[in-house]
Amino acid sequence: MIAGNLEYLMSSLPNLSFGNTEALQHEVSSIFKKYHLTSEASDNLLPILNAEAKKFLTKTQYDNFLRIQLSNIHREDFRESSNDVIAAFSIFMHNLKHELKIFRSNRQLEDAPSHPTFDSLPELSTNPLKAEVQLLKMQWNQLEALSIGHYSDVTALYIYKLKLELLLRWWSFNEDVGFKIFKETIKTEGYGG
């Protein structure tokens, strides 16, 4: 990729849309691989994005870019970030996780209210995979809403990274691998007898 301004970087990154089709995964990963000049598997795209972003960001911006991750975006330091978008998404994630915590705690109790009201949490599918996709979609929609007005600035790049992480998380859901882990987990001990 030719070094240049952030606008160039944003326009050259693969377009992300909320889906998990093989075509989309292949399209995104193949473009990233072209940047990296490698034919390795598509499951490690973030280091490639980081490497590309480093070429266009100042040291402080790059350090912030590395710190921002889907797994820690709910942390207090992000909730108090000077970047309004990051702060808003961090608060959204914190609230979502907090409501999920209450929802999950209630499920453990026999006399818990069957349909407690939550601000952001919708009625979730009983199928855990579908429920996770519902939650990912909520986060995606929130990022979409926050991205308005940010097309080629550093905030757009932050949002892009978070969206990519959302997709990578979804794409990591694999029936064969998951079932193998399930089978291994259930037969790890002897049962006496």
Binding site: N127, P128, L129, S172, E175, G178, T185, T188, Y191
Partner: peptide, 30 residues
């Protein structure tokens, strides 16, 4: 159970948590 789990077992491929640590048998009484 396997058939039911297969409908959503893909999520277990997410490398975030070690299920072995969460579920260990304390004792089996017969």
């Amino acid at each position: 159970t396997n058939s039911e789990v297969k409908q959503w077992v893909g999520v277990m491929a997410e490398p975030t948590i070690d299920l072995d640590v969460l579920i260990t048998v304390k004792n089996i009484d017969t």
